[in-house]
Simulated scan of single mutants.
Amino acid sequence: MDLCQLAEKIKLWGQEIGFQQVGITDTDLSDHDQGLKNWLEKGYHGDMSWMERNHDKRIHPEELHPGAIRVISVRLDYLPPQAGFASNLQDTASAYISRYALGRDYHKLMRNKLKQLGQHIEAELNSNPEYQALNYRPFVDSAPVLERPLAEKAGLGWRGKHSLLLNKDAGSWFFLGELLIALPLPIDSPSDDNCGKCTACLTSCPTGAIVEEGVVDARRCISYLTIEYDGVIDEQLSSAMGNRIYGCDDCQLVCPHNRMASLTKMGDFHRRDTLSDSNFLTLLSWSEQQFLKNFEGSAIRRIGYLQWLRNLTIGIGNGPYSFEAIEALESRLGLGEVLDVHIQQALQKLHIQRPSRSTKKERLIRIIQKGLPRDA
């Protein structure tokens, strides 16, 4: 069998399945061994204790799938149309959600596509008596896989100063996935670093989480704080979060290479209808049942209802004063200790902005209005 020809077929099949790019590399990540150890020793992983485990498997992916000697790395673009970056970030009464999470959760979707790719390869090998059934396994954030270093080696892009993978034609608005296989395919060459002297991502981070080129202190990163961390967020950091309540795109927004990014062709990644109204008070009014229903098939569901409320509370506290906001926050007191801490902080911030008129008078007016007929 001509393995070079097979590698070209694999890339073609990958594009037919829906991936925008496919690259192939070996499983050697020994160059990243010390860097990962240094990152962990400095505590930059925060409460993500799982990052401390399975170090050898991260550096030697073949230990995750015995027999594997190659990694097929794939790229799937997700930037939705009408992303509304600037308008959403400037509207402090509305919640900003990272654009990757507006639509369907990508994990299962990508894994199924990777399985399809594996089946294509398997079918091709079955026609050749020299090979037995293909030994392959797909990964999409489902195991200790260093996906960005693997994608970089496979030629899908280079690691930007914000630590994300960048592609000169597609920017960084894409997901990564891997297919580990036991087949000696020819490997691709890594991409050149095209960041140059640009430091836009470093200077734009709202919380200063990018502590040096290519190194992120997760403990300060808004994506980590809103998604991975479920405790009380330091007030200095929570104030810097603004209206960002699930993830953060700032370092990508300012990157010049993202001017070249294409919109996704997959409707699964478009903004879901339940997020058409992202007003803070609307989102805070959802019951737990509404939260679960509205985020069926969404990555947001994994943070749980109380963390969702905590994030919304922080955003409301960073926004403009209104009696409705005070009332909505007070209605959520007593649901959880962490939530209560942030509600009290938000109330304090809003009360500082409060107009001079009496709060008691405001409450009285509101009570009277609630008792009036709808057409009054």
Rank of each mutant, 00 (worst) to 15 (best):
G171D: 07
R272E: 06
T203Q: 13
S278W: 02
N243K: 04
P81Y: 07
T282W: 10
P256A: 12
K293M: 02
P355R: 12
Q15W: 01
G371R: 15
Y96V: 02
Q353D: 08
Q15N: 12
L350Q: 01
G315A: 03
E41F: 02
A200M: 05
V341A: 05
W158C: 10
G336V: 04
E296Y: 08
V74I: 13
Q369I: 00
L117S: 07
L237A: 04
E52P: 03
Y229N: 08
S191R: 15
Y246V: 13
E362F: 03
W39K: 08
S276Y: 11
G242N: 00
S87I: 09
L339G: 01
H32N: 09
G214H: 07
S356I: 00
L329D: 04
R99W: 08
L79S: 01
P190D: 11
G171P: 07
S204L: 10
D250C: 00
L40K: 14
G317H: 12
T226S: 15
R366Y: 08
S239E: 14
K57A: 11
Q20D: 15
L29W: 02
L176E: 09
L36Q: 11
S298V: 02
I72Y: 10
I187F: 00
N135E: 11
R332G: 03
I24P: 09
E147T: 12
N318R: 08
K37A: 13
K361R: 13
S287I: 09
D230R: 15
E288L: 07
D56G: 02
P149I: 12
L180R: 10
L109R: 15
Y44I: 09
C251Q: 02
G304Y: 07
C198L: 10
W286N: 06
D91Y: 00
I222R: 05
Q307W: 08
A170S: 14
K361V: 14
I303R: 13
Q348E: 11
A261G: 07
S298A: 13
P66M: 09
N38I: 07
P81K: 11
Q5A: 14
S322C: 10
D277A: 01
K361W: 09
S204H: 11
L164K: 01
N167S: 15
G118F: 10
G18F: 03
